[in-house]
């Protein structure tokens, strides 16, 4: 669903268009708040609107976030691929979509999630976690410290 469709069909999504900024679409509804946490959106003071539990053929229920005045750096936005691998970005300038992007999962995930192994040293000392992506679909990570392997259901956003 593009930003234009969203605007046309007001019964589907009643969130206003933004003049400048980023729209993140195709977020699995259950991971909306994880995306908000990963991107640090709770610390931003510009206008943010979001809708969730929207119908989606691909995802079942999806969420969308519109962030005014913010354009993310690629490294930063790619972090959300952990929980929203299908996410699509629309870069908006003067109410128009000027660029579309998809997210790509980095090979190493640094510091976003906690290791689920309670015996892992990263849960006992102040250490930035580091995981190697060993599989992209489903996203599977190996902790670089305790070497435990985990999948999405075990991801705890820090």
């Amino acid at each position: 669903m593009s930003i234009h469709n969203v605007n046309k069909d007001k019964t589907q999504l009643k969130v206003s268009a933004i003049k400048e900024g980023t729209v993140i679409d195709h977020i699995p509804a259950k991971n909306l708040f994880k995306v908000i946490t990963i991107l640090g959106l709770t610390k931003i003071d510009t206008l943010i609107t979001f809708g969730t539990n929207l119908e989606s053929h691909k995802l079942g229920k999806k969420a969308i976030i519109k962030i005014a005045g913010i354009f993310f750096h690629e490294d930063e936005i790619n972090k959300i691929a952990l929980v929203a691998p299908e996410a699509k970005l629309n870069i908006i300038r003067d109410y128009n979509v000027v660029e579309k992007k998809i997210v790509t999962l980095p090979e190493i995930i640094t510091g976003i999630i906690k290791c689920y192994n309670p015996q892992c040293v990263t849960n006992h000392e102040k250490i930035t976690t580091r995981f190697t992506v060993i599989n992209k679909k489903p996203v599977t990570l190996k902790c670089n410290y305790c070497e435990k392997i985990m999948q999405e259901e075990h991801f705890i956003i820090q």
Partner: peptide, 10 residues
């Protein structure tokens, strides 16, 4: 030797 997993890597 350490009881925590990953301690030696760290």
């Amino acid at each position: 030797r350490h009881p925590l997993e990953g301690s030696a890597r760290y």
